[in-house]
Design a protein around this nucleic acid. Structure first.
Lengths: 243, 243
DNA sequence: CGCCAAGTTGAGAGCATTCAACCAGAGTGG
DNA sequence: CCACTCTGGTTGAATGCTCTCAACTTGGCG
């Protein structure tokens, strides 16, 4: 399986690609690189010359504050390019790290510029990818803000489950969740202890439960209702569960 | 003064433009439209065929939840195109409204596509604009999450002041603030009452104060320290105060 | 003058944090 | 094989931040 396949799966989940676009993507020079759990690929303040295609594993972007506190601003699944934005903004304002061990493929910015110059449509698709990234950020602002902890956690689980399903990771209402409760908490701005209690509540209410690090959707409609979740912001061409 | 001037000022604050790019921008067909305070230009769920250049006044994007609660996810000053993203993602996942009365210039997506097709660099600059938008979202996630209320408010004021200064609205450490305390609160996920108390605290600590809706920076370094503010994420070519 | 939006202040309730203890399972080294 | 350690998860109790409710002030405007 070629390194680029994860990217094709992801991009075809959000847009239509022509044969020419697929061939251009296949022509990208991609260098594999293995990351250890917790290893930072792009630290805050750096000026990347490459972007990373996540092939296997999970990554997160996080902001580190002066007092040592951390805020996770995004999670990433295979097929995504978490630092695509570095193509047009020079300096990293956050750290991009592997959460669990991860395999990435680094792509030189010049390579990306080459294929974009040859296909305006491909440029638009990649632009679109960064815009969906931004749409997710908007939801996360609300997760951390007005949406309470319970709704915020439910919303995060809805989102992750659908994204996992779009790349074929989640089946039969369950998904091998690659994040700890502490990490889920850091994403919605609560402590690991509180995250634990909130998850317990979601289980008691019969919405969703995490057991031995696999997420079980007990009742999608209930989870969705608690979250106030509307999947359109993910801009997936097919939304499997949200019918 | 041409309608497009605000856009030129903004884009030249974040990137270099060639004469050709300026001419292309000047060729955009822009329809002026006046908005009343609180009027929604693009409601959540709509499918815009135009984007709006904000010429005068202020706008905000907000998410409305099922229980009627609102979260403001961004503020916009003249020169910005708050719904540029609708060029590549069809459906609005939030509402774009005027905060105070505002003058916008609507630009058909086809017009934007025309100039982008003629200048790859201009396309890159507009892409960059949406990426900076996303960088601001990331900070707002943290404002609403791990950063406490005091630091969050301080961070928001730092950001708004620098953005206002970049377009010449703020002078002499003071800025005619177009937002109410309630709106500032809705942006960092706190109530207007708490926002009031936090602002009082920022004044007592000698960092910043809002008097008769003008923001006074009492001590930039103190405000910056409280916020843990680092201006690089705004990607302004010149950062006036942050020396 | 009266109304209304915005701001200010106080008090009590509730949610989330911190501190602290403890459990379970995986991996390590003797 | 078994202690030992470490990470992740679970639970309780006290503290404290933020919300809600409520009252009151101020300034602008018809």
């Amino acid at each position: 399986m070629a390194l680029v396949d994860a990217l094709l799966t992801r991009l075809e989940a959000i847009a239509a690609l022509s044969d020419k676009d697929r061939a251009l993507l296949a022509s990208l020079k991609i260098e594999p690189k293995q990351l250890k759990a917790g290893e930072a690929l792009q630290p805050q303040g750096s000026r990347p010359s490459h972007s990373a295609l996540l092939i296997q594993g999970t990554m997160a972007r996080l902001q580190e504050m002066t007092d040592g506190a951390r805020q996770i601003v995004s999670f990433h699944l295979p097929g995504e390019i978490p630092d695509l934005h570095s193509l047009h903004i020079e300096r990293m304002d956050h750290t991009l790290s592997a959460v669990r061990p991860a395999l990435v493929g680094t792509i030189a910015h010049d390579e990306l510029r080459r294929v974009i110059a040859q296909s305006g449509h491909l440029g638009a698709v990649l632009w679109r990818e960064t815009l969906i990234d931004a749409a997710v950020f908007r939801q996360w602002i609300t997760n951390n803000g007005k949406r309470g902890s319970l709704a915020g956690m439910a919303h995060l689980l809805c989102e992750l489950f659908l994204r996992a399903q779009a790349i074929g990771q989640a089946k039969n209402e369950s998904w091998e969740m690659p994040f700890t409760q502490a990490e889920l908490g850091e994403a919605i701005g609560i402590t690991s202890i509180h995250a634990n209690r909130i998850l317990k509540q979601l289980k008691t209410e019969g919405a969703a439960a995490i057991e031995k690090s696999v997420l079980h959707i007990i009742a999608w409609d209930k989870l969705q209702a608690i979250a106030g979740f509307d999947a359109t912001y993910l801009h997936l061409k097919r939304v499997p569960l949200a019918a």
